[in-house]
Nucleic acid binder design. Structure first.
Lengths: 337, 337
DNA sequence: TTGTATGCGTTATCAC
DNA sequence: GTGATAACGCATACAA
């Protein structure tokens, strides 16, 4: 049901207020050199006409559009949405809008979206990868600053924001030790993921500092699936490995772990504590018991990406990989005994 | 690392090609009244300068920006992302871009975003609600067409696109009957959700047409949670209700159902078939056995929303509530016995 | 303080 | 076929 009257322009406001467009512009933008009387006139006229400034036209002259592009390959939106929200917060939703483009893992489509975004003269770009491993740079000499989030760019000259997986691994183990566990196993996902390796390394380092070693002796790499969590746990149990805690590489794996433990008649956290990763609410709060997990602070990632972009708008952009800390979210699956 | 040279303009291209901006414009847009020679000259110049037309300026004169706003309240992005992708497809990602704004369930923030989007002169608006019940209209006399998706507008003069929950309920039951089930229970979520009521009604209607009634006699309303699925199934079992199939109101509920059945030593689908709703992959493919479910075709919802919007760009927009069909996705949890 | 004029990058309407 | 020129809506340096 659109009212087919075209929106009021600054000209309309100026005419109604009996001033020039210049005065009207100044008045609406709160600038000096305008009398209180005219200012009031203009404001009233704008009110009457429901004037809404054309941001496009403003951007044309300002050289800034107030838009940033969010180029993602994450089909589920599980990463993009929190990052988007963090960025929205940092920018201020009224000054900057986000153009979200989903490349669906297709490089051609990504190039297409990139061209479109540049032709829309976005002020900056945030690139969100689907998995936390280096990805091809979208290009060196782009006319706007680019920040890579979650998945770093393969080009070290780009600026990338990633989660600090090594420290996250340490945090996980420290927590389990603090709640009195000593025989800790680590069941994680696809070993080709750098994140899996990093978390495992952090875990091993922290264990060593406590004079402990991994229950079952080695990190159990597999797949990022519930099924793997189940079968890996099954292996642990049939081998009669002494275990009082399992650090899972993802919440989905943790779900499988819980399943297998329950199936074996073990109680969580009394017999075995379980710690997940991702803090994906649909998994952590609905499991029994509610699952402790490590949150990657994706909103923060988005917020920092926005801040780096804003800093780049005046001045130059940094480069390299910036590690952002994770956060432990304790729930019942890892309470002290 | 932005190359701080401002992007080439049509003027630059024209100058390099030794023609006027008018000719350059025509050549680049493939219009008539340009000699083959000049056209080639212009194209080459554009190539050399890596010319990318400024969509803002183009939109300013065309009166169309080629942008649509997607106003959502769905914090997880579970609804918005598929709808966004469907809309992208229908529009053609190169002609239309989507500004995604998350209101986070806050009406004030929603109004803010709305004003921003209008000031950016989006060509249209898609409003996605967080739950499939009528929501307040964002306003009657907006200067652009608006389509409500998933959650209909409370104002019947608006155009809303929703899933056909009644038919979905029928589809669910028909499928279960076709795989040989006769004692079918329905465990669903919050009864204040119209969608829950509609699906239940469809289920009851279809049962009646087959001369059947609900196992346990009544629809089991509760919460949209795994826990409710578990406890409701437990009630069914302790009451010794004869059941050979359970239609769950969501995949999460279905997960709880599966849990409880397994815990009672029952086998799925041999003893009891289980059908979910939402076809949320992280739940359906990782459960044991993989969960049959009903897909709301959210991509289609987005696609149709885009089509309605495009139709509205020339001509007027329809009104009322348009129901879109769901789709059954059979997996192992409901195979015939 | 106020208004006039110019430019932002394109497209479109004209004369030539 | 080609090229000035006028919009589009706004901001601003400059002149009044």
């Amino acid at each position: 049901m659109p009212a087919d009257q075209r929106p009021a322009t600054l000209h309309d406001v100026a005419r109604l207020a009996r001033v020039s467009v210049a005065t009207a512009s100044k008045a609406l933008n709160g600038r000096k050199h305008v009398s209180a009387a005219s200012r009031a006139e203009v404001l009233k006229a704008a009110e009457v006409l429901a004037y809404s400034p054309n941001t496009l036209a403003r951007g044309l002259v300002a050289g800034r559009t107030g838009m940033v592009g969010l180029l993602t390959s994450d089909l589920e939106g599980r990463l993009s949405i929190p990052i988007l929200m963090g960025a929205e917060d940092a920018f201020g939703a009224d000054r900057t809008s986000v153009l979200l483009c989903d490349a669906r893992g297709d490089a051609v489509r990504e190039g297409h979206h990139l061209r479109t975004l540049l032709s829309r003269r976005v002020d900056g770009l945030i690139v969100v990868g689907a998995r936390p491993d280096p990805r091809p740079s979208i290009g060196r000499d782009l006319p706007v600053p680019v920040v890579y989030a979650y998945a770093p760019s393969a080009d070290p000259d780009d600026l990338s924001l990633v989660t600090d997986n090594v420290t996250a691994g340490r945090t996980a183990i420290r927590h389990l030790v603090e709640v009195g566990r000593r025989r800790i196993a680590h069941i994680t996902g696809d070993p080709s993921y750098g994140a899996a390796q990093d978390r495992a390394r952090g875990a091993l380092d922290e264990l060593a500092e406590h004079g402990l070693k991994l229950a079952g002796d080695r990190v159990m790499f597999g797949a990022w699936s519930e099924a793997w969590g189940r079968s890996a746990t099954g292996m642990l149990l049939t081998q009669r490995t002494a275990v009082d805690a399992i650090f899972a590489g993802s919440d989905q794996i943790a779900r499988g772990v819980l399943d297998a433990l329950h199936g074996a008649g073990l109680e969580v956290p009394r017999d075995v504590a379980v710690l997940g990763f991702d803090n994906w609410e649909i998994f952590t709060t609905s499991s029994t018991p509610p699952l402790s997990s490590i949150d990657m602070n994706l909103e923060t990632l988005g917020r920092v990406a926005a801040e780096r972009l804003m800093a780049a708008f005046d001045g130059r952009l940094g480069s390299g990989v910036e590690q952002l800390p994770c956060r432990l979210v304790p729930r019942e699956s890892t309470t002290a005994r």
